[in-house]
Design a binder for these strands. Sequence first.
DNA 1: GTAAGTACGCACCTTTTGGTAAGTACTATT
DNA 2: AATAGTACTTACCAAAAGGTGCGTACTTAC
Lengths: 140, 140
Amino acid sequence: MNGTAKGELSSSLTEKLSRGNVLAKECPSRGILQDVTSRWGVLVLFSLLDGTHRFSELRKKITGISEKMLSQTLQALEADGFVLRIAHPVIPPHVEYRLTDQGGTVARKVGDLVNWIELNLEDILHSQKRFDECKARKES
Amino acid sequence: MNGTAKGELSSSLTEKLSRGNVLAKECPSRGILQDVTSRWGVLVLFSLLDGTHRFSELRKKITGISEKMLSQTLQALEADGFVLRIAHPVIPPHVEYRLTDQGGTVARKVGDLVNWIELNLEDILHSQKRFDECKARKES
DNA sequence: GTAAGTACGCACCTTTTGGTAAGTACTATT
DNA sequence: AATAGTACTTACCAAAAGGTGCGTACTTAC
């Protein structure tokens, strides 16, 4: 019921420099969020957490990603300033990708989430099964 | 070069109970991750961080979401055990949504990411502008 | 000389996601 | 008596995401 959307931080600190608001339809923060949380964006950030990788290394590491999607998401993350692209002018081409400082920060947050899901996977899968069975019973 | 993918945790702890691996194509953790990081999933979790909400409250809070998408993502999050749905058997219908314990944990991680992006939005937008200008110069 | 690897871009097509509008069943308000 | 609100679902359509295969330009290994 006060001016700020969430009670956690007081507006004096929060609104100093124009802060984004993802809950607002037109806010550009939604776009950034999508780059970071997109299907492949998450996995690329997560992969880059353990250091510099070449294009082909990422392709092998992230099973199932296509070249098109890999280059597309790398470009989006580069544009946002989360990933640094270093091209060595040699033949055959040699390009390296690594996280920027900002990228490291987001990647660690994303990695946190990913790790938690990986660890709690069994639990979650059980929940899903229970939910599905419950629904099936009601439909019969 | 050891058995585990990431060096952070030793395999003895990590692999005790079958842990997921998002980097593997067939791993069900990818599906869960998508529920959580989907366009609307993120925003629903984030919104529920400050307490129980009714359907129509969420709809108003998350600007731009359609009823269809809201109910769809709520159901996915409920199935995963992140959101609890409490239906009061009255007319007109009264349904409340809140985070489960597990849901609270993921939502806090998601919220962390969202807050960071909101706070650093200006910076990121500058990066994007620089990147676009750079690209435009090369194309001309 | 043929194949493979490097890091992509492009065109075409399919799949998934998401929006719109309508309907439901009932009540409370005007 | 008509309208709005509650929490949805369903059918239909548009838009976005994503996959496949091909091409590039050049080198190294077989």
